[in-house]
């Protein structure tokens, strides 16, 4: 039986003006999950809740099968974390930061860290505040990868990175999966990152999980239906989410491809949906429901 790296059940967090409601998903060990959703959907809050950086209002979080509060230090020793907005003591050098952080990890690999710094072209004696956002992200990634973490949790790790390094990072994450104990949870706006690497995709919208499934299952289930507006009858509308109509026709997302084929026949074109299509149509569907 496959163990789970993360299990989240009925998670809630209430803020003024925003609530995370009944969030549940599972990240199986040895897989990569992409957490996707528009700005303010709750992706960062979910990640912070897992790490106990914000206090949950309710629900259960288990990491490596352990309660995330009762076994907090043990769990975190096996996690490599990349923050969305890296906030270290700004006037410390990278060497200082490494010297302060490395002793917390029993499996710290100094030679790997040094080689990552060299590979990412990060000068160890430079102050953190002198780095660009992309370089700060690279430094965090180097720290996260240098202690043989079983779980990488990354909040928008590709933001501010150039396309070449972004591709390298994603390939590195995929390569990590050769070790079946390793798992990755990362949030992103860049849906092409998910197409390339994620085994599972969890879509968050306005504090709720809209879907959480394997990438293949999502691709097999969802399609974009396009056709002339006059074909969009009442009973056909029910099959579609996020319908958009223009002078040239309509388009909408369906989660039941066989039913859509039966309903529309040759009156509409049905194409497999990309992750971006699903995100955009679901966002539109929820906003205009």
């Amino acid at each position: 039986m496959m163990d789970n790296a993360i299990e989240v059940k009925g998670l809630r967090k209430n803020y003024k003006g925003f609530s995370l409601r009944n969030v549940s998903f599972v990240l199986p060990q040895g897989t990569i999950m992409g957490l996707v959703g528009p700005n303010g959907a709750g992706k960062t809050t979910i990640i912070k809740l897992i790490l106990n950086l914000v206090r949950k209002s309710g629900g259960e979080i288990r990491v490596f099968g352990l309660d995330h509060l009762h076994n907090e230090a043990e769990i975190k020793s096996r996690i490599g974390f990349v923050h969305e907005s890296p906030a270290y003591i700004e006037d410390a050098t990278l060497n200082d930061l490494k010297a302060a952080i490395a002793p917390f990890y029993g499996k710290w690999n100094e030679s790997l860290f040094r080689s990552l710094l060299a590979e990412f072209e990060l000068p160890a004696d430079k102050k953190f505040k002198k780095l660009s956002h992309g370089m700060k992200m690279k430094f965090q990634i180097a720290l996260a990868l240098s202690h043989d973490a079983d779980l990488l949790i990354m909040d928008e790790p590709t933001s501010g990175l150039d396309p070449v390094f972004r591709r390298e990072l994603l390939e590195r994450l995929s390569a990590l999966m050769q070790d079946e104990r390793k798992s990755v949870l990362f949030s992103t706006h860049i849906t092409s990152d998910l197409e390339r690497t994620a085994d599972y995709i969890t879509f968050v919208h306005e504090g709720e999980i809209v879907l959480s499934k394997s990438r293949d299952e999502i691709k097999e289930t969802w399609a974009v239906v396009k056709g002339p507006v006059e074909q969009l009858t009442g009973e056909r509308r029910i099959l579609l989410k996020g319908i958009r109509t223009t002078a040239f026709g309509f388009e909408g997302l369906t989660g039941d491809i066989p039913a859509a084929r039966r309903a529309f026949g040759s009156a509409a074109v049905i194409d497999r949906a990309s992750i971006e299509d699903i995100m955009i149509f679901m966002d539109r569907g929820n906003n205009h429901a």
Partner: peptide, 21 residues
């Protein structure tokens, strides 16, 4: 207060430690 100034508490608390520690 320097940690507060740089908002670095999130980094300290994402290390393998409890808040009590």
């Amino acid at each position: 207060t320097r940690e507060d100034k740089f908002k670095a508490a999130a980094v300290s608390c994402s290390l393998p430690v409890t808040r009590k520690q």
